[in-house]
Design a binder for these strands. Structure first.
Length: 334
DNA sequence: CGAAACATCCGCCACT
DNA sequence: GTAGTGGCGGATGTTT
């Protein structure tokens, strides 16, 4: 079997698909931005079945598709950018292809209603996932083994990533780049596309909730989200969950319960996640020592940072810095 | 690495 | 009866 590279990306083009969602991964990965330091991706738009007629998309536009299902045999990343109808059962050939690619180590991505295709393939069983908010209830009902989150832009759980409706697919694709090539490269792509580089608050294998400080500051929103936004401005102090609960004027039990309901994670897991995320930024953009980074993001010492960094990112902080530190323009910590 | 101290968090249940 | 709250306990996770 040929080696699968994460930069080889198969994108499903399906009959009657909305054009916008279909085009998202193409617009992000199929444009050569190597002059700006972005890796080249090999994009394989593919279709299922023997028919080679052009596919119809929304507004009657048609698309020619160069590849068939065999694209799944060598892609390191497979993206199902959308699906025409959540009630339409996908072709077994497609489901088998996705399962085989997943079993062979490919990362599988479902954007918008594309999540339903991953769900039908069983790839989301026992995992957290999301889809367009109009359809989260339907997904949760039809697939009880999936933990469907409705308040996130995207969710990464192990080797699968799903995104919420339409434009959240952009955030999810940027997350793929951020994970493989660092926040700097993802930021470059985002700037070229004139979209926010990091609309979501988290990354790595847990939940990335839409906890942007500015979007939830002010008095509206739940006390849980306000406490979460507050702690992000205080990330350098060690802070216990009890402090967050007090800040939210909730009992500890209610805080824990509300937090999980809202974000799909526990408070400490989320907080450690945010700390690692900030540490990634500091490792990339500052010259602070690993110990100083640890303290700056609220871990007591470097040992604790290393533990969490390794378990979330998969490499040690120093190794991450060596791979992703930006060259000339080191910025001070904010 | 290991060990000990400490914190988290979720099922359970009583209570409003 | 249903819905929400919060204390308790202890398995599990975190920090030192």
């Amino acid at each position: 079997m040929p080696a699968r590279k994460a930069t080889t990306i198969a994108v499903l083009i399906c009959q009657n698909a909305p054009l916008f969602e279909t085009s998202i991964p193409i617009g992000i990965f199929a444009v050569d931005r190597s002059a700006a330091g972005v890796p080249r991706f090999e994009v394989l738009p593919f279709r299922v079945g023997q028919d080679r007629q052009p596919l119809r998309t929304s507004a009657g536009l048609t698309i020619e598709t160069p590849h068939g299902i065999e694209a799944l045999e060598r892609a390191g990343t497979v993206i199902v950018p959308t699906w025409s109808d959540p009630n339409l059962a996908p072709d077994p050939e497609l489901l088998n292809g996705l399962r085989a690619a997943g079993a062979a180590g490919a990362r599988i991505v479902g954007l918008c209603l594309g999540s339903f295709v991953l769900a039908a393939a069983g790839l989301l069983d026992g995992r957290r996932a999301t889809t367009h908010w109009l359809c989260t209830a339907a997904m949760a009902e039809r697939y009880p083994r999936i933990q469907v989150l409705s308040d996130v832009l995207y969710v990464e759980d192990g080797p699968v990533l799903t995104s919420a409706g339409s434009a959240a697919g952009i955030d999810a694709c940027l997350q793929l780049i951020r994970r493989d090539h660092g926040a700097g490269v993802a930021g470059t792509v985002a700037r070229r596309m004139v979209v926010p580089p990091h609309r979501a608050g988290g990354q790595a294998q847990y939940v990335a909730t839409a906890l942007e400080t500015e979007s939830i500051s002010g008095q509206q929103g739940s006390p849980v989200l306000e406490a979460a936004a507050w702690v992000l401005t205080q990330l350098h102090n060690p802070c216990r969950v009890d402090d967050l609960a007090a800040r939210a004027h909730l009992s500890r039990r209610s805080f824990d319960r509300d937090f999980r309901k809202l974000t799909g994670t526990s408070p400490l897991t989320w907080l450690n996640h945010q700390r690692v995320l900030r540490a990634q930024q500091l490792l990339e953009n500052s010259a602070l020592s690993v110990d100083a980074v640890a303290r700056a993001v609220g871990f007591g010492n470097a040992v604790t940072l290393r533990q969490h960094f390794r378990s979330q990112i998969g490499v040690a902080p120093q190794a991450y810095r060596a791979a992703f530190q930006t060259t000339a323009d080191s910025l001070p910590a904010q």
